[in-house]
Design a protein around this nucleic acid. Structure first.
Length: 347
DNA sequence: TCTGGGGTCCTAGGACCC
DNA sequence: TCTGGGGTCCTAGGACCC
């Protein structure tokens, strides 16, 4: 979807169309979640600190995020996709992969999907089409907003040969910087780099992977059902906090919120973890795995508090979080009970 | 001017088991 | 008194994605 949160907001504020609009929280440490294309011209993008966004674009209209609304509109969009295509992999609220292999004329099908999304939801989207998720994703980003780009693997290689490696999803800032240090600053160079050089820099797996990504050779199937393996709640304080007596009540609140959700969905996990970000932005995690999966508020709170006490933050804390992991397995066991293959047999 | 919230996957080292 | 090879599970950190 194109500037999804902003587009949803414009539906109830049509008077703002054409203006720089920024959806961002209001606190001193808020970041931009979405910027309209008009705001992007001023250098305001997702993850830009809101304080910086206000300076870059003083005329922008700032709106607080309304995730409940965005989730509703997202469901509408995904429903339209599923009405048109059998195999849909949802990636976040505003993105999905569609497997069009069953269509005799896939390009026509993609055109119909784009038109249907716009007609039924009033929201704009960009579509990329290719022989793999990787090509499709890069193609969909190439002509946003309102794009429709169809590329073969070879066409993608040609078109993005001189683009920076960071164009590829999976090559982030750290990897791009390390590549640049070694003179690899285009996808053509990365695709042509000797495997020995890449594996020397990044190890055998990532090294090979990067070369393949640059040649658009990465293929992974469209996976319709993805079950969450962990769930967490975290919060960044407006001002750093110190002291267990201050932090523990926050941990209790986060644990209660998390467990309420898990209970409602009857999901449990055996591993309880905390996340602590200090004032120097270093992030620390601690985890403990119990004998049995749980979503019990008292258990989660107790373990999380123990972990925090044992960690004993050595500096002021800017973020605190709680996590329950291993949900996949817990849900499967709860749903089916112990299967035959799990029954113990001693002879 | 500092840097949200909610996730996934990978790596490396250690414990432990056969 | 010295130590193989294969495997799983767990923890912690880091890179990355939307």
């Amino acid at each position: 979807m194109d500037a999804f949160y902003v587009s949803v907001e414009l539906q109830r504020r049509p008077d703002l169309a054409g203006r720089p609009v920024v959806v961002a929280g209001s606190g001193p440490r808020a970041v931009v979640t979405t910027a309209s294309y008009e705001a992007r011209k001023f250098g305001v993008f997702s993850a830009t600190p809101a304080s910086r966004a206000r300076r870059l674009c003083a005329d922008a209209v700032f709106l607080p995020p309304d995730f409940k609304l965005y989730r509703e509109r997202s469901r509408d969009v995904m429903a339209v996709l599923r009405e048109n295509v059998e195999i849909v992999e949802v990636v976040g609220l505003d993105e999905a992969y569609l497997d069009l292999r069953g269509f005799e004329r896939p390009k026509a099908a993609a055109r119909r999907v784009k038109a249907a999304v716009e007609e039924r939801t009033g929201l704009g989207c960009s579509i990329g089409m290719g022989p793999s998720k990787l090509v499709a994703k890069v193609a969909s980003d190439a002509e946003k907003p309102n794009g429709f780009v169809v590329l073969s693997r070879e066409a993608a290689r040609d078109r993005f040969a001189s683009a920076a490696p960071g164009l590829i999803p999976g090559i982030g800032p750290k990897t791009a910087a390390r590549l640049a240090e070694h003179g690899i600053d285009t996808l053509a160079k990365l695709g042509a780099a000797l495997e020995a050089e890449l594996t020397g820099l990044f190890g055998p797996r990532l090294g090979v992977h990067l070369g393949r990504l640059a040649r658009f050779e990465h293929d992974s199937p469209v996976t319709p059902v993805r079950v969450a393996k962990s769930e967490s709640r975290e919060t960044t304080f407006d001002q750093d906090l110190s002291g267990l007596e201050t932090l523990t009540p926050v941990l209790e609140r986060l644990s209660a919120e998390l467990c309420t959700t898990l209970e409602r969905e009857d999901r449990r996990g055996p591993t309880i973890g905390i996340k602590v970000r200090l004032d120097d932005f270093s992030t620390h995690t601690r985890a403990r795995t119990l004998d049995a999966p749980t979503n019990d508020r008292a258990v989660v709170t107790g373990v999380a508090s123990d972990l925090l006490r044992e960690f004993d933050p050595p500096r002021p804390v800017r973020l605190l979080g709680v996590r329950v992991a291993g949900l996949d397995r817990a849900a499967a066991e709860a749903a089916t009970g112990p299967g035959d293959d799990q029954m113990a047999l001693a002879v």
